[in-house]
Amino acid sequence: MWWSDLIAALHATPLVELPDFEAQSVAAADLLSDILATDKEDFVILTGQISPQAIRTALAVGALGVVVVRGKQPPQETVRLAKSYGVPLAVTELRMFEACYVAGGVLWNTPLSTSLSTD
């Protein structure tokens, strides 16, 4: 799954843009501790967390990118950190379930409805 395809499918707004890359899976959790406990490799994070810790968590587990769900706007500090360490960051209006559904469609290449609403 290409990051650019995921971002497009999620109608996400990129906050930190870097060269496109391929990911093999997705880790979705609001608790960063759960993300720290994952065994996945080459993955991107879907989370509702917008604090700088979301980026540090991504760095610790070697996640390739972070997508914030529910349209939450990360503070400057988070964006700055992501930029400093080269972690692609984007925000989607979709809620976690819908975002996972759409990401699954991109990941497993199954055409899914993209008409999910955010309300």
């Binding site: 960063l32 501790s33 759960d34 989370t47 967390q49 810790q53 979301a54």
Partner: peptide, 9 residues
């Protein structure tokens, strides 16, 4: 937990 920690992991 709201900060994303404390999952007991």
């Amino acid at each position: 937990r709201d900060l994303g920690f404390g999952a007991g992991m």
